[in-house]
Amino acid sequence: MLLPAPVELPCRPDHAGGPLCDRTAATLDLMSRFGDEGGRTAGALHLLCGVPEPGPVQSCTRTLNRPMTIHGSGGHLHLLGREITIETNPGTPRARTVLDIPVWDFDDQGARPVRPVSLQAGETVKVTCRHDQALRDVLPAFEGQPDRYVLWGEGTTDEMCLGMLQVTFP
């Protein structure tokens, strides 16, 4: 089960003067690099998850439409990723964290087994990611690239927030 969340990461205040720091310009840049689908994904994620407040932390809560059991979890972020969590039934007495990676490692994106968690239709699963534009200053992949408003995109220097659950259905 894939759990995508929007990415809406504005430029840092001291770097906000660049032409790609405007969200519309950044969307057009994505479309020029990946076709129309590149720009549509951000909008589709707004339909799925709601329109988030731009910033370093983004999340998406999904309501399950059928019962399932979680057996494993994993995450996928790119180079600006810092951390990812997946919770079931957040904010309730039945809340459980099934993935908690407080220090994201782009080179370690494997799935992790979890003690099985059985969920019913109507229960919720939430993915939360944190990204950090300051990593642009230290990672070689960003050398020579202008600062920009970062949206969900396919390139390694774009970003994603994707939780993944290995599930079975009754």
Score class of each variant (00 low, 15 high):
residue 109 Q to V: 15
residue 129 C to R: 03
residue 114 V to N: 07
residue 123 E to P: 14
residue 98 V to Q: 00
residue 99 L to G: 02
residue 101 I to Y: 00
residue 98 V to P: 06
residue 108 D to I: 14
residue 116 P to L: 07
residue 102 P to K: 10
residue 96 R to M: 01
residue 134 A to F: 01
residue 121 A to M: 00
residue 102 P to N: 05
residue 98 V to S: 02
residue 120 Q to K: 06
residue 127 V to S: 00
residue 98 V to W: 05
residue 96 R to A: 15
residue 115 R to W: 09
residue 123 E to R: 05
residue 133 Q to S: 13
residue 135 L to W: 04
residue 134 A to R: 15
residue 98 V to D: 00
residue 128 T to Y: 03
residue 105 D to R: 15
residue 114 V to A: 06
residue 124 T to N: 11
residue 109 Q to D: 04
residue 112 R to I: 10
residue 99 L to F: 10
residue 122 G to F: 09
residue 102 P to L: 13
residue 117 V to R: 11
residue 131 H to F: 09
residue 132 D to G: 06
residue 132 D to S: 05
residue 105 D to S: 13
residue 123 E to N: 12
residue 117 V to M: 10
residue 104 W to A: 11
residue 134 A to C: 00
residue 135 L to A: 09
residue 120 Q to V: 00
residue 104 W to T: 03
residue 130 R to V: 11
residue 117 V to G: 14
residue 133 Q to R: 13
residue 104 W to M: 14
residue 127 V to M: 03
residue 109 Q to Y: 00
residue 112 R to G: 04
residue 133 Q to V: 06
residue 125 V to P: 10
residue 103 V to W: 05
residue 97 T to F: 05
residue 104 W to G: 01
residue 127 V to R: 00
residue 133 Q to A: 14
residue 98 V to N: 00
residue 132 D to Y: 01
residue 126 K to G: 01
residue 126 K to L: 10
residue 126 K to P: 07
residue 112 R to V: 14
residue 124 T to F: 06
residue 109 Q to T: 05
residue 105 D to F: 04
residue 105 D to P: 00
residue 133 Q to N: 12
residue 115 R to G: 08
residue 116 P to R: 04
residue 127 V to Y: 02
residue 118 S to G: 10
residue 134 A to Y: 04
residue 105 D to I: 14
residue 123 E to L: 04
residue 111 A to Y: 11
residue 130 R to E: 12
residue 111 A to I: 08
residue 109 Q to E: 06
residue 98 V to Y: 07
residue 135 L to K: 14
residue 101 I to K: 07
residue 113 P to V: 06
residue 118 S to I: 04
residue 100 D to K: 11
residue 135 L to R: 14
residue 134 A to I: 03
